[in-house]
Design a protein around this nucleic acid. Structure first.
Lengths: 224, 224
DNA sequence: ACCCGGGATATTGTCGACAAAGTGAGTGTA
DNA sequence: TACACTCACTTTGTCGACAATATCCCGGGT
C-alpha cells in the first residue's frame, strides 16, 4: 500500500529488470542503501537474486535519473545529499512544476478539476482529524494530478521518471517538519483555486512559491 | 569535426556501448534510421557489429531521452515527429532554456561572458561573409555555453543528455529556413547583452522568445 | 465466409562465462 | 624512507546461449 505511493501508476513492473530497478530505487530513496555507497554489481546481484545484467540495467536507469553516478570501468555510487544539490534540484523542480501548474490551469478538464477539489476536501478531513500521513501520500497525490493535468508527456516524464525520486530521497532522508503540514494544505488550496479559475499565471506563481517554501523547510535540516 | 557538434564535450565515448549508443543516436537524429522505424535488436547487433547486450543498452538509453519508445516484450521503435510532439517538446525547452539564461546571467563569470561576446562577434563575421553553417554549429555553440553558464548540473543534464537530441532531430529532419539565420543572430546578440548586464529577468524573457520564434519556424514546415 | 484456437517462428528477456580494465599490495631501487 | 614498478586480484565490460513471451499462419468448426 505504501508501495503504491512510490511507484506511479504509469510504471507497472512487468519484467524482472523492472522489479529489480524499482526495488533498488526505493531501497536507495528510503535510505536502506545509504547515500554515497558504492554499488557493486556482483554484490547486488546476489543480494537481489538476479543476474548481473539485470543489476546493470537497474543501475543504468538509476544513473539516468541521477540517483547514482556511474563512471566507466570504475563503478557506480549513490549520490551524496548536499545543500548545493538540493538547491539545484529544487531550482529545476520549481521551474518544471510551476510550468505544470500553468499548463494544468489551461488543459485540465472540468471533471479533473472537480476531482482535484474533492481530493483536497478529503485531505482537509484528514488534517482535521489529525492523520498526519497527509505529508506523504496526500502531497504526492496532489502534485501527481497537477503534473498529469499539464497533458505534456515530456514534462510528465521528466518529473515522474526523472527528478521526483531524487526529491523524495531528500525529503525522506532529511525528514519533514511538523508545522509545515497545515500551511502546505492552505497553499494547495490556493493553487487549486487558481486552477479552477483557469488563472494560469497565478497557478504557476503559487506553485513556485509552494515549492520554494518546501525547499526552505528541508534546507533547515540539512544545514545541521 | 561535424561529429564534434553532435556529441557534447562531456560525453567522451570510452566503452563500446558508449560508441554504439552515440552512433545509433546520430543515425536516428540525422534520419539515416527513419522516424517510426522498429528497432530490431538482432538486426542492429549485426549492423553495428556488436553484441545484442550493447544494442540493448543503447536502446535503453535512447528510451531515457525519449528518442525511442520501448514496450516490454514487444520492442522499441523510433518516435514519430508530430506537431503535438514538437509543441510539447518546445514548451519544455522554452522553460528550461529560459531558466538557463536567467541562471547564466547570475552565475557566469566575467571571463565566460567575455568569451561569449567574442564567440558572438566571430559568428557575426561568418554571417557577414555568408557562411551559413552558422545555423548548425554556431547556434549550438551559443546555447551550449549559456546552458553551461547556468552552473546547474541537473539543468545541464536535462538539456544535453535529455531533450537536446530530440530537438535536433526535429530541426534536422524538417530542415531550417533561410531568413531565420540573421534574425536569430540578432536575438542572440540581445540575449548576450542582457547577460552582460546581469539582467536575469530580461535574459530569460529574451531566451524564451527566441526559442518560441524558432519553434514557429519549424512548425511552418511540419504542417505541410 | 468468418471466427477461434493451436502450433511454428521470430523477438525480447535472462543468465553464466570470458575478456579487459582498474586497484592495491608487495618488492626492489635510488 | 620514498618512489616506481610488477603482479595478482577484484570489478566492470562484452559476448553467445538458453528461456519466456509475443506474433503470425494455418486448420477446424460454426
Amino acid at each position: 500500500m505504501m508501495n503504491f505511493r512510490m511507484t506511479f501508476a504509469s510504471e507497472q513492473p512487468v519484467t524482472a529488470a523492472d522489479k529489480t530497478f524499482i526495488q533498488l530505487r526505493t531501497d536507495i530513496v528510503e535510505g536502506v542503501i545509504q547515500a554515497g555507497t558504492k554499488l557493486s554489481e556482483t554484490e547486488l546481484s546476489t543480494k537481489y537474486a538476479v543476474s548481473r545484467a539485470i543489476i546493470r540495467e537497474a543501475i543504468n536507469r538509476l544513473a539516468s535519473c541521477r540517483i547514482v553516478e556511474r563512471k566507466a570501468n570504475i563503478g557506480a555510487r549513490v549520490v551524496a545529499l548536499t545543500p548545493e544539490g538540493l538547491d539545484q534540484l529544487y531550482q529545476v523542480r520549481e521551474s518544471l512544476e510551476g510550468m505544470a501548474a500553468r499548463l494544468a490551469a489551461q488543459n485540465m478538464t472540468d471533471q479533473e478539476i472537480a476531482d482535484l477539489n474533492s481530493l483536497l476536501s478529503s485531505h482537509f478531513d484528514e488534517v482535521k482529524t489529525g492523520e498526519s500521513y497527509y505529508q506523504e501520500a496526500g502531497d504526492v497525490d496532489f502534485h501527481y494530478r497537477i503534473i498529469l493535468g499539464s497533458k505534456n508527456s515530456h514534462l510528465i516524464s521528466l518529473l515522474f521518471d526523472g527528478i521526483y525520486h531524487l526529491v523524495r530521497m531528500y525529503r525522506v532522508q532529511l525528514g519533514m517538519a511538523g508545522p509545515r503540514v497545515t500551511t502546505a494544505f492552505d497553499e494547495h488550496k490556493h493553487i487549486v483555486q487558481a486552477i479552477s479559475n483557469r488563472d494560469a499565471e497565478l497557478a504557476e506563481m503559487l506553485m513556485r512559491r509552494h515549492i520554494w517554501y518546501s525547499k526552505s523547510n528541508i534546507e533547515r535540516k540539512l544545514v545541521n
